[in-house]
């Protein structure tokens, strides 16, 4: 079987390769098991549920079926929530980018010995629960709050209030997911050699041009990662719309939650979940392809 080798010390390469690939499987095992139990199986269950049909005469009971009509019905009823989800998440992502980029830039290039502290401050809000933080925003944006008074004094609010409007929902989403934007941006910016910017200045690029031609393209991996990490959870979020918005600001997440918990309409809830997942996947793939980050070093 194995060839006779002049020295026992020289293992045949195939054995080494085999051992290495076996190590790979061993290392993958915990992660793969986790994914199988908590992602793959629920994923299939979810899809199966989304095609179930009601058991006649028994409300709240469903049986196995192939009712693709569930999707059509769900989308026909909830398409405005879909549009809102993507619009709110999109605006919140853009705002997070506008707020987060200068912040990440400052931390990466200008913070000096305060860098560690500033990074901690970015993450610090996460030490309090997501729900609590969103409740806090209820107070911050309340009708009599200084924030609302300030904007009212400037006559910037069409309804005269912030709470229970789409503005509040978008503000909440922006705030809650900002760290997910800042951290990848910081990681990408921090990797940029400042001498590249000096070299650009040396080659007749003004600070603005140097940013446009060097810093921005080199920070693209961070921009892509940050926008995805902000957009995806924001699009599926329901807490912000629930606590800060009115019934007119409901997002897909709220529709799923109501169908599942209140109406016990599991097929509709599942169909909505599945449709949301598919929509996000399509958006993300198109986005990554357009951003062309695989081209970056």
């Amino acid at each position: 079987m194995a060839p006779v080798l002049p020295s026992a010390a020289v293992a045949p390469p195939s054995t080494v390769a085999q051992r290495r690939s076996r190590t790979g499987y061993v290392l993958l095992f915990p992660g793969m098991t986790w994914l199988a139990v908590f992602f793959a199986i629920p994923f299939v269950t979810l899809f199966v549920t989304s095609l179930q049909t009601p058991v006649p005469g028994k409300s709240g009971r469903y049986q196995l079926g192939l009712e693709f009509g569930n999707y059509a019905t769900a989308l026909a009823e909830y398409w405005p929530a879909f549009v809102r989800s993507f619009a709110y998440a999109g605006i919140a992502t853009l705002l997070a980018l506008i707020i987060g980029y200068p912040l990440a830039y400052f931390i990466a290039f200008r913070s000096g010995r305060w860098r560690g502290l500033m990074l901690v401050l970015v993450i610090a809000p996460s030490f309090a629960s997501f729900l609590l933080r969103t409740y806090a925003w209820k107070t911050i944006l309340a009708d009599e709050s200084p924030v609302t008074s300030f904007f009212n004094a400037l006559h910037l609010l069409p309804d005269g209030r912030i709470l229970n409007t789409s503005i509040a929902v978008i503000a909440g989403l922006t705030y809650n997911f900002l760290p997910f934007m800042v951290l990848p941006l910081y990681a990408a910016l921090e990797r940029i050699d400042p001498r590249l910017i000096e070299a650009a200045n040396d080659l007749y690029a003004s600070p603005v041009t140097a940013f446009r031609k060097i810093t921005w393209p080199l920070s693209m991996p961070g921009v892509v990662a940050g926008t995805l990490l902000t957009f995806i959870p924001a699009a599926g979020d329901y807490i912000n719309a629930e606590l800060l918005g009115s019934t007119k600001d409901r997002m897909v997440g709220n529709a799923i939650q109501t169908n599942f918990i209140e109406f016990r309409d599991y097929p509709t809830a599942s169909a909505l979940s599945f449709a949301l997942m598919a929509a996000i996947l399509i958006l993300v793939f198109t986005y990554i392809r357009r951003a062309g980050t695989e081209d970056l070093v």
């Binding site: 070299a199 040396d202 080659l203 007749y204 393209p217 970056l296 070093v297």
Partner: peptide, 30 residues
Amino acid sequence: LRAFKRPVNTVFQSYALFPHLDIFENVAFG
């Protein structure tokens, strides 16, 4: 005069070539 307005160019110690641009575009940058 700020660096980008000076008729002076530098060959940096670590070269500081732009990693996302090819050789042609690096040379064409100025």
